[in-house]
């Protein structure tokens, strides 16, 4: 690396130093590969090894009892297709995505509009509003667990004021209220994320275009759909994509609030996979499920990216 360093300004002649130069030149040519090598090696730990491993193990029959590594074909995949609990967990996951995502987007957008025009102290508001986002999701879940407590939590108390009588809702146990409870916690934590990104995007919209549209007599809705939306779309698409992926893997908040209960009624893919793998030790079966999830994700991400063309 240091050839020619000590020799100062003298240039390598045709003798020995030239050889050195040539050697370090090869180093130069391979430089770009050396630079990515360590990172790639580490990423393969999560990017390649698990995929291959789950694929292999999913065709064997490893369970807590059995170390059967013979080839069993698609047995577990077939079982998975008939596993009602798997499909239900997929459905639960889907419910969380389709309710939470639009809610976060709409609330986030409304908040972004609220703070879009000049508002003294805006920086402070924004700084405070971002706190839920950077809280650990498991801590957020724990916090809501305290808030939702049927006796000592403030939520029931506040509802009681409005109802005029004590409200004894068992938020984390009553099947009618577990979904709202989880969704409230989830939306509370991630709406500010949407808000922050949309505020930044809205601030970057060319103001003169909006004014021109207003002069042309366009109403708020028309201006929004014709000018604002296309302008913020790239950022919005990324925000939605990030949140959709996060919601798809929803685990922490549910773990803290209900652990998938009561029964299996709030079990998501992630929770079910955890239970299967680490409580029932259905190694091969879990692997089949993991691999299926990878495939589903890979396909849908590719399709979505292609549709949204936010790639670059």
């Amino acid at each position: 690396m240091n050839s020619g360093g000590a020799t100062g300004e003298t240039v390598a002649g045709p003798g020995g130093p030239a050889l050195l130069t040539r050697a370090s030149q090869a180093a130069d040519r391979n430089f770009k590969y050396w630079m990515i090598f360590p990172a790639v090696l580490v990423i393969l730990l999560i990017g390649l090894f698990p995929v291959i491993y789950t694929l292999i193990v999913s065709t064997q029959n490893l369970t807590m009892m059995d170390e059967d590594t013979t080839f069993h074909g698609l047995m577990h995949y077939r079982a998975l297709l008939e596993d009602a609990r798997f499909w239900e967990s997929l459905l639960h996951t889907f419910i969380f995505v389709v309710v939470a995502l639009p809610a976060e987007l709409i609330f986030g957008l409304a908040m972004a509009y609220l703070f879009l025009e000049r508002l003294p102290g805006r920086q402070i508001f924004v700084a405070l509003l971002v706190l839920p986002v950077i809280t650990s999701p498991i801590i957020a879940g724990a916090t809501w667990r305290l808030l939702f407590d049927n006796r000592f939590g403030p939520i029931n108390q506040i509802l009681g004021w409005f109802a005029g009588e004590p409200v004894p809702i068992l938020w984390t146990v009553d099947p009618n209220f577990v979904y709202p409870a989880i969704l409230i916690a989830e939306i509370w934590q991630w709406t500010p994320f949407m808000f922050l990104l949309l505020l930044a995007a809205l601030s970057n919209v060319d103001q003169s275009q909006i004014e021109a549209a207003e002069l042309d007599g366009a109403g708020f809705w028309r201006t929004f759909t014709r000018i604002v939306l296309p302008a913020i779309w790239p950022v919005m698409a990324i925000a939605v994509l990030i949140r959709a992926l996060d919601l798809f893997r929803l685990f922490d908040v549910i773990w803290a609030l209900t652990r998938g209960g009561p029964g299996t009624s709030t079990e998501t893919i992630s929770i079910y996979a955890y239970v299967l793998g680490f409580q029932q030790f259905e190694t091969s079966y879990t692997s089949a499920m993991a691999f299926l999830v990878i495939v589903i994700l890979a396909v849908s991400i590719t399709l979505i990216l292609r549709r949204m063309e936010i790639d670059r």
């Binding site: 090894f49 893919i269 992630s270 793998g277 692997s287 993991a290 994700l297 991400i301």
Partner: peptide
């Protein structure tokens, strides 16, 4: 974009 639950098991 890989969900942690998918890789945590093999890891």
């Amino acid at each position: 974009m890989i969900p942690p639950i998918v890789i945590v098991f093999p890891i």
